[in-house]
């Protein structure tokens, strides 16, 4: 039987109820929107890069708990890190969500998100934020 507690862990419910970095960055140096056509959910990522570091990172979006928690955890983890590190973590997170890598390779705070793999219909929800961060980072170099 599918255990809901696996998906809706306290940390995920907490980040859904009180999402971190849930705001716009004005003016946004770079932003990207990830959209799930299945449910209509969106996650919009705002990003400011300076001196090879992600100085600020925030998000907005009207999304489910999984997408919201994923974006909240991700922005909290990545803010202040070097763009290289951000890129590496994004790649690792995508690999875990694709089932190509074990959750253990992720920084600890992101590991709860890997439980979404037990709910195949929800994996794309978890993926929205990382896709948008990736795009925003790419756009920041253009």
């Amino acid at each position: 039987m599918t255990d809901l507690a696996d998906l809706y862990q306290a940390v995920i419910l907490d980040h859904n109820r009180a999402p971190r970095n849930f705001r716009r960055i004005e003016p946004p140096r770079s932003r990207a929107l990830a959209h799930n056509p299945v449910c209509g959910d969106t996650v919009e990522i705002f990003l400011r890069v300076a001196d090879g570091r992600v100085k600020d990172l925030a998000f907005l979006g009207d999304s489910c708990a999984v997408a919201t928690a994923s974006a909240s955890l991700l922005t909290e983890l990545l803010k202040g890190r070097s763009t290289d590190t951000v890129r590496t973590i994004c790649r690792q997170f995508e690999a875990v969500l694709s089932g190509d890598a074990e959750a253990g390779i992720l920084p600890e705070s992101l590991q709860p998100m890997a439980r979404v793999l037990h709910f195949p219909g929800r994996v794309q929800c978890a993926r929205l934020a990382v896709q948008a961060v990736d795009q925003a980072l790419h756009a920041s170099r253009l």
Partner: peptide, 12 residues
């Protein structure tokens, strides 16, 4: 609760 989360909880 977002509709997607409602759907998952009901599915369980």
């Amino acid at each position: 609760a977002h509709p997607h989360d409602i759907g998952t909880i009901l599915d369980a």
